[in-house]
Design a protein around this nucleic acid. Structure first.
Lengths: 247, 247
DNA sequence: TCTGGTTGTCTATAACAATAGATAAATTGG
DNA sequence: CCAATTTATCTATTGTTATAGACAACCAGA
């Protein structure tokens, strides 16, 4: 992707240290860092962004808190993660398989689950009546120990009432559905939006306030075309890109 | 989409008026506004967000500047645009056709064009040698007079050296390509990211600083599979959603 | 071991963001 | 027309953000 030399603006309602943190984070893959993953010294960064060194320090402090960089007194500040994960979206979209080869360890963690009555939009997506019982799962997807996605899944309670237990044991939606009789499924549609992360999401994704999340809203259907699962997934926008088609 | 009651945070590096502006903008389609498109009074909003009325006013001032809402003394504050455009992404992705039925007037405006030598990433996408001459077009896409996308296109100069003129006259990539012998093309792949808008983009999209842009990086290929066009499109994230498959 | 380069910490000041309260001006509905 | 509702404007105060300068602590290499 072509590098856009991100400028910062004063009096924009966004603190300059935050804008600089965002700019540094976005530029980590580019010419900002050298081969060793070392950032330019604070003094240089301050000159480049046209701000005081203390302001740059506030930005770096935020990035260090996020786990993106790490500073060492006397040595410099170093990037901890560089590559952005590319997450394919298509007919056969699955979380773990999509990241094969990009991350050594991939896992999904179940945060919570419960039953509720389907609100109108979810009922429509699952092609059931509004108010029908649905199971909701809340999960976090990790790649190499770093959280990349925060998903909420809904299933028809009548068909998949026990999926929470199965999911908790197997740690995978695909495997859980397989055990409940859905041996194969395809992605019916995916809608993609972007917004600032909600507090809960930022928390689980270890992002700082103001960070962007890519939101995918999707429905998976079984081979008969019946909707099986409705999901709302929030990706840490600076850790992933979504790809439709290609390679 | 399920509404997330967006919370606001203090001392996050993002001014509260900006967080509130973002929250209001995100909630415009929801229960925040009544049937007439009228926002709750400033006093009520201030209570709901737990801030002073002046802070809400700062948020509304920013939204009014963006053109999202309009205030009238004594009457209230009203939403000017409500619906989010859904932009389909698939094999036959085209800008104007995808928005048919969603906006009465759709147009594309050519901002600038020029020739340059292809950098490595663009050359790879177009399957040509690095340094080969390419034509670059800069454009803005509008729906009902509101800018929704800011695109940069690259074409192989050898095949499409005159495309800037043709595009300027026809106002459409599809028609311009047709006149240059590419009667049909398909979307080879699309990659989607989200980030804070660069200054230039915010300017053309009439967004305020800190706004989010959805970035699609895509390649269109002719029916022989030869890449025809590489594009980098920035959508105003609060005005569009991207949809893959479905309806 | 010394020197230059780098991050860490401290103090002080100026600019901006948020709160608080009061009052004016415009609109709507009775 | 009057009263209630709502946005617009003003003053004042407090807390957060950004700037400025100085110096300490630490590291790597000569």
């Amino acid at each position: 992707m072509t590098v856009q030399s991100e400028q910062i603006e004063r009096q924009s309602g966004i603190a300059m240290w935050r804008q600089i943190a965002d700019a540094i984070r976005a530029g980590l893959a580019g010419p900002l860092v050298d081969a060793d993953g070392k950032l330019p010294p604070e003094k240089v960064l301050a000159e480049r962004f046209g701000v005081n060194r203390h302001t740059v320090r506030a930005a770096i402090r935020a990035l260090a808190h996020e786990g993106v960089v790490q500073s060492h007194q006397g040595r410099g500040t170093f990037v901890r993660r560089k590559r952005r994960l590319t997450y394919p979206i298509g007919q056969r979209t699955r979380f773990s398989q999509g990241l094969e080869g990009q991350a050594a360890n991939r896992s999904t963690e179940l945060l919570a689950h419960g039953r509720e009555q389907a609100p109108a939009d979810i009922a429509r997506a699952l092609d059931i009546e509004t108010g029908t019982g649905v199971v909701r799962l809340e999960s976090v997807g990790l790649a190499d120990g770093v959280p990349v996605s925060r998903a909420t899944y809904w299933f028809d309670a009548e068909r998949f009432g026990t999926i929470a237990d199965v999911f908790a044991r197997s740690g995978s939606v695909t495997r859980a559905l397989a055990q409940l009789g859905v041996t194969d499924y395809v992605r019916a549609w995916t809608r993609i939006e972007a917004r600032h992360g909600a507090v809960d999401d930022l928390d689980h994704l270890r992002l700082s306030p103001g960070a962007i999340v890519l939101v995918t809203e999707a429905v998976n259907a079984d081979m008969d075309g019946r909707p099986v699962q409705y999901s709302l997934t929030r990706f840490a926008a600076d850790r992933v890109s979504l790809q439709v088609g290609g390679d």
